[in-house]
Design a protein around this nucleic acid. Structure first.
Lengths: 122, 122, 122, 122
DNA sequence: GTGGTCTAGACCACT
DNA sequence: GTGGTCTAGACCACA
């Protein structure tokens, strides 16, 4: 229990995991996810931390709450997750990649070549 | 003290940090870096862990030992670090990037366009 | 200190007040608002409650954080507040109004007439 | 006990509640409502506050006192409550609504359209 | 100083 | 049981 990295907020790591589990089909659209207290005990974190995770995912429309019943995966959760990750890739991953390329003096043409190599290797 | 991630060997994380500090100029070429015991106490890790770090960096020619004096940054440390990181970029960062792009269904042409955007934004 | 109603979360009431103060010009676009701890002491609430208020307003793009400096009113804060309130009027106020009208057996035509009356009375 | 708002006199809030309970059938026409002292203890308020509540409702003809027996719901209590609330709707709710519409720059024609929408949605 | 996160424990309303 | 909110107090990174 409680095997989280130190370089990212626990509640965000938990959100990522839940999204992975939704994408993998562990929790399908419309299904109920573990209650706040259940998950808190299971992962060895404070209930408030789980609350923050669920709030964040609610705001993104990936899960929704039903008072007194629990949290449920929304019908379009998968679309929303993929879109959010695509956005993150464009706004975070790519700029960081380009920053590194600049620092390491790697020309952008390299990317196209490496992409071909990689596709072959699969 | 001792704020290391759990997902990577501590001695490798320490090596990364030392490289960062060399690149930043904190320890210039030819300068002495902290002794094994000093660094072990300072970072709250076992002295053997520091030894492994220094051995790894020695093997890469980034630092070198002088009997009875300590470890010193080599003259071409910066080049070696940049080259090592360039290799890491090619062998680790890029494949991971391409894997993500495949998962998110992002075409490779996007990279060239985004690179131009990013260069403009700077 | 601490004069909040019991029928609505304190952090939401605080958010409403802050929006009022932004609309009134007390805090203009680009200006800094009180720090989390300042406001907590001033209003006699817990710092975490202020944090929730500021987080909620951040998510709506009404304020934004600058690490180590504080929270600042965004340039388009006023537009966002007005739009949010208009949306609330349509989605919350009106349905509640109509529900009451149905309960009290008040015909919808009444509204137009009363509107004219009210406009004259001003 | 004693969960009243701060922004409205407690005796008026108690009167509202009693009216709700009459409308809901908890106390039917002709039935006896709790004694002043009973209600005061139950709600944790001063007995004089309950007296003011009952006086106010008596003046509106919603309840009536029978010496030595207690207060009783009048036969036409429900009509009187509905009428009072209709008056409140006209004199308080609507002007406040119109004030908001003016502030938010919402044209009065919107009401008719939204009313149709709402009726459909039920 | 600033904000950001986490824990522990409490009370509430709703089912 | 469920989620929603609040308090008290702690430690962190950033400026």
């Amino acid at each position: 229990m409680n095997d989280f990295r130190q370089d990212k907020a626990i509640y965000l790591q938990m959100a990522d995991r839940l999204c992975d589990e939704i994408l993998s089909g562990k929790y399908g659209p419309g299904e109920r996810i573990p209650s706040v207290r259940e998950l808190a005990v299971y992962l060895g974190v404070n209930a408030n931390t789980v609350v923050r995770t669920y709030e964040a995912l609610s705001l993104q429309g990936i899960i929704q709450t039903r008072r007194g019943l629990g949290y449920f995966v929304t019908e379009d959760a998968i679309d929303r997750i993929v879109n959010a990750r695509r956005r993150h890739f464009m706004d975070e991953t790519l700029p960081e990649l380009f920053r590194q390329m600049q620092l390491l003096d790697i020309p952008p043409e390299t990317l196209a070549g490496k992409w071909e190599e990689w596709k072959q290797g699969r």
